[in-house]
């Protein structure tokens, strides 16, 4: 990989302002975050429901419904979706 100014930032060359930005995760946390997506490992601590418990049928039904009823969409309201009975003709 070619180093450029971005690739150096947050790596060896710590400029002053970078300290004010996010600290890197603890090394154990970093390695866990990577190992958590390794399918070869038995995930004995992972805080996510197993794929076996994913409600795939219902999710598909809902997403199809959302698709059928879809109207043009764009930026959302600042606090999140709350359209009160918007009428479309």
């Amino acid at each position: 990989m070619v180093n450029n100014t971005w690739s150096l930032m947050g790596h060896e060359f710590q400029t002053n302002w970078i300290e004010n930005v996010h600290q890197a995760s603890m090394s154990t946390v970093q390695s866990i975050n990577i190992a958590e997506s390794d399918p070869e490992l038995i995930q004995l601590s992972k805080g996510e429901l197993s794929k076996e418990m994913f409600p795939l049928d219902r999710m598909q039904t809902i997403i199809q419904k959302v698709g059928r009823e879809l109207l043009p969409f764009g930026y959302e309201e600042p606090q999140g979706n709350f359209e009160t009975q918007a009428s479309y003709k």
């Binding site: 009823e69 109207l71 606090q79 999140g80 979706n81 709350f82 359209e83 009160t84 009975q85 918007a86 009428s87 479309y88 003709k89």
Partner: peptide, 9 residues
Amino acid sequence: SRKVILKLR
């Protein structure tokens, strides 16, 4: 005239 009531909040 389809009323879209999308009110997550």
